[in-house]
């Protein structure tokens, strides 16, 4: 049982980190960023190229993933989402735009990095072994980094001037504007921050799970699942959703294994029942 719980916590930490960026963008701009998974993949490939191919330090590669995705996110917001949001009377236009960006990024990543699964050398060797628990040290490290990053992100949103401005935007965009918050500027920072988080987690996890050009879509779907469990647009909800999904996967795969691949079937049924009872998810409204 200790192994199942440890697996669930580790999965939960990485899932929560994946979902954070997605829920941040949704909270700030009411945009469902279908390209979130592709941004994760691009972050993974940047780390793969710099750490795996060029042999430069992992920390530098991770920083490059973060920077690359922050720039991509800022550009996407400024030149694509901002004009569409301003000029379109229909909210679904942003969804179509996000889907188009996802397909475009899929194609570009496939051309640039090829079709093969890619991996990098482990950042730390060895496996922790006890009577009831086996866990490679690199997973422990990644789990700890993920939790530290989640804590840093929450502190940044809570106590920094930028974080307060973004929270105000998430609460009430018009009121924030009337109070002097530069909506365009903080929307761009928020989108860049969301994309940066996707890039960092992609870079971090390439050391464990590798990366390939086709996994963006499935990553996005899983991230949406976590966000829906926790409540769209709520950071605490995304974190809770990530840990709940990780734990459900770990327990389900252990308990239900004799019945074949029914774990996700059960998770989806439970999600449907849960959403019919709590349509806004666990936390149900933007932070404030």
């Amino acid at each position: 049982m200790e192994q199942v719980i440890a697996n669930g916590l580790y999965l939960g930490a990485q899932y929560a980190l994946i979902a954070l960026g997605l829920t941040l963008i949704f909270a700030l701009m009411n945009v469902l960023n279908f390209a979130h998974g592709q941004m994760y993949v691009l972050g993974g490939f940047v780390t793969y190229t710099i750490y795996g191919q060029l042999g430069l330090p992992f920390v530098l590669a991770l920083a490059c993933s973060a920077l690359t995705l922050a720039i991509v996110g800022a550009l996407v917001e400024k030149f694509l989402f901002r004009p569409v949001i301003k000029r379109s009377a229909r909210e679904e236009s942003t969804m179509l735009l996000a889907a188009a960006i996802a397909f475009l990024m899929d194609a570009i990543i496939l051309i640039l990095f090829g079709e093969k699964q890619r991996g990098v050398p482990k950042i730390i060797n060895g496996v922790f072994v006890s009577d009831s628990l086996v866990m490679p040290y690199d997973r422990i490290l990644v789990g700890v980094i993920a939790i530290a990053m989640i804590a840093s992100f929450m502190a940044y949103m809570q106590y920094s001037r930028t974080g307060r401005a973004m929270r105000a935007l998430a609460q009430d965009r018009v009121a924030a504007q009337l109070m002097g918050v530069n909506v365009d500027r903080y929307s761009m920072i928020g989108f860049a921050l969301g994309a940066l988080l996707a890039g960092v987690v992609g870079g971090l996890l390439v050391t464990i799970t590798g990366v390939n050009s086709g996994i963006g879509g499935p990553i996005s779907i899983k991230a949406f699942l976590m966000v829906m469990i926790g409540g769209a647009g709520v950071v605490g909800g995304a974190i809770a959703g990530g840990f709940i999904l990780g734990m459900m996967e770990s327990v389900g795969l252990n308990v239900l294994r004799e019945f074949g691949d029914v774990t996700y079937l059960v998770i989806f049924v439970l999600l449907m029942v849960f959403l019919s009872l709590r349509p806004n998810g666990l936390m149900g409204k933007p932070w404030g």
Partner: peptide
């Protein structure tokens, strides 16, 4: 013989642990 995984699984530790 009944253990399966979704094809988009990225981390196989939970799937393989009981096997």
């Amino acid at each position: 013989q009944n253990d399966t995984y979704p094809n988009d699984t990225r981390d196989f530790t939970p799937v393989l642990t009981p096997i």
